[in-house]
Amino acid sequence: MQIDYTMWKAIIYKEWIKIRWTAAIFLGLGILVLINILLRIRHDILFVDATNYWYNVLFRGYNYASMLKFLPFLAGLGISAAQYFPETVNRRIKLTFHLPVKESRVLMGMHLFGTGSLLLIYAVWLILFVIISAIYFPPEIMQSTLITIIPWFMGGLATYFMAALILLEPVWLFRVLYALVAYGFITMFYQRAGLAAYLPALPELAVLTVLSSIVVLFSGYRFRKGEM
């Protein structure tokens, strides 16, 4: 048990070294975007007037969070690349698979850490976003906006999972095929839609996102089988 704990601590340490700068950059970038959103709302409410601004949000489909749209996607892509690209250089994943842990366990452990880090970044952004929204909008607007932006965050997670699948795949042709599937899958989360329009589809999207979390095991399996 003690060995298991120190081993997982070591694996997390390695993953942390790989992603720390990327995670910090995206966290900071998100905070800057949120500050920008805050200043824009403040500016528009002060200089345009609150009634008009709310009217635009409620009836004309204006989304004050639109600057955030592709940030979760970029963060998912960035964290995945930072975590899995170094494993593919010189087929370094061999070292990871040689560690005294079951291959699928170590891969899922790494994946869990990456997902957790991404969720933490998303959580910080969302909390700040809720705080900013709460200052200027009633709960109804805030709730609708949150429903609008949640698929963007799910899309970010799906991007992380699919990018891991692609990066760890040993055969280039398969990478291209996975990339095409990933493109079709991820664009589902980023369709242009009105405020809270995704509400009926959220459970299905959530299920798909969770399912995509384990596809990386397939690339790991193919690598171990010696596909090249």
Binding site: T6, M7, A10, I11, K14, I17, P86, N90, L99, P100
Partner: peptide, 19 residues
């Protein structure tokens, strides 16, 4: 080939927790 994104202290710290 090793985890070349680490330095000699980091990599020693990593493996010492593994074995």
């Amino acid at each position: 080939i090793q985890y070349s994104f680490m330095n000699i202290h980091q990599i020693e710290k990593f493996y010492s927790g593994i074995y």
